[in-house]
């Protein structure tokens, strides 16, 4: 074995990783104090999509379930907050766990009958699901969802007497949640559940043969991913102070799907990077605003060509690919 290859195998990135993480956190925390109001707002959206991406990453990245309707759970969370706050007067921030629970509950009910579907079939069902949720919201059942206009007049969240109002407030709210979720998901990744999830992704039949409860673990992933989307929905509703069906289109589900695959399946830093790219891309291309989605489409295809494993793939995934190739 040549020395370079040996060094590559022995080297450890741990100190470098820690330094990088510290730098990144310092940047995140300090950014609102020197960044302009506009860019802080952009930073908020990066955080929001990171939250959505982390949720989908559990479903798509960890377990390999093709979910192209994740916006449905986001919508359910946002509408749960909007309806309970605007119609029943419950405080917005207290609805955050409620939104998560409602989205998770809906995910459990909806995904139970479809969880056995594989690959592309699941993909299609989730697309249909996303459309059904959007259409139901437009059709205004029982006068609850307000039809195409949505629900307006959501209260600002209040945290320990402090009204969350400015872009900076929302920025910290969303990034605190992202940090919390990222940490929790990292722990989960390394647990028995996380390993079982990855096993299902790599070989479902083998996993089942080894006694992994495939169905329960898939459902757990769906419920957990939906809960994170529900949290994102709550924050989104609080920030916009209104929700309408237009915010939860198929394109949003596509963007979330792309966030996970751009970043790298099952990679938490990758997902956050993916969210940053998807949100920042249109901002950077603002001068050619009309054509920005055109370039975005090309960039997606190009990224998949040059880095099929994503921009920041998870270590274990890389090794797996390397072995498979040799």
């Amino acid at each position: 074995m040549n020395p370079l290859k040996k060094w590559r195998e022995l080297r450890t990135w741990a100190p470098l990783r820690l330094a990088f993480l510290a730098l990144f956190l310092a940047f995140l925390v300090s950014f609102p104090f020197w960044g302009s109001r506009y860019w802080v707002d952009v930073g908020f959206y990066v955080g929001l999509y990171a939250l959505l991406g982390l949720g989908l990453n559990v479903i798509l990245g960890e377990v390999g379930l093709f979910n192209l309707g994740h916006a449905a759970f986001w919508a359910i969370g946002a509408y749960a907050t909007a309806i309970l706050n605007a119609r029943f007067g419950l405080p917005t921030l207290a609805l955050l766990p409620v939104s998560a629970l409602v989205a998770a509950g809906c995910a459990w009910i909806i995904s139970s009958p479809i969880i056995h579907l594989r690959g592309d079939y699941l993909c299609i069902v989730t697309i249909a699901l996303g459309e059904i949720v959007r259409l139901v919201l437009i059709n205004n059942p029982g006068g609850l969802t307000g039809g195409p206009n949505g629900v307006v007049g959501i209260d600002r969240p209040v945290f320990l007497g402090h009204v969350i109002r400015t872009p900076m407030d929302f920025y910290f709210l969303v990034w605190a949640l992202v940090a919390l979720c990222a940490f929790g998901l990292r722990q989960l990744q390394r647990s028995r559940i996380g390993r079982a999830w990855n096993y299902i992704r790599e070989d479902e039949i083998a996993a089942e043969a080894m006694g992994v409860d495939v169905r329960a673990l898939k459902l757990l992933a769906f419920v957990l991913g939906a809960a994170l989307a529900g949290i994102a929905g709550n924050i989104f509703a609080a920030k916009m102070r209104m929700v309408s069906p237009d915010s939860f289109t198929f394109l949003e589900s596509c963007l979330m799907f792309c966030i996970v695959l751009l970043g790298g399946m099952g990679s938490i830093p990758g997902t956050i990077l993916g969210a940053a790219l998807v949100v920042l891309f249109p901002e950077i291309l603002r001068p050619v605003a009309q054509y920005r989605l055109l370039f975005f489409g090309l960039a997606l295809a190009a990224t998949m060509y040059f880095r099929p494993g994503g921009l920041w793939p998870r270590r274990r995934a890389v090794e797996f690919l390397r072995e498979a190739k040799s």
């Binding site: 055109l294 489409g297 997606l300 990224t303 998949m304």
Partner: peptide
């Protein structure tokens, strides 16, 4: 390379074409 990268590429092409 794989089916998932192909799906993303296909989505990218759909977004590209409509725009």
């Amino acid at each position: 390379i794989g089916r998932l990268p192909a799906v993303v590429s296909a989505l990218g092409m759909a977004i590209f074409l409509s725009n």
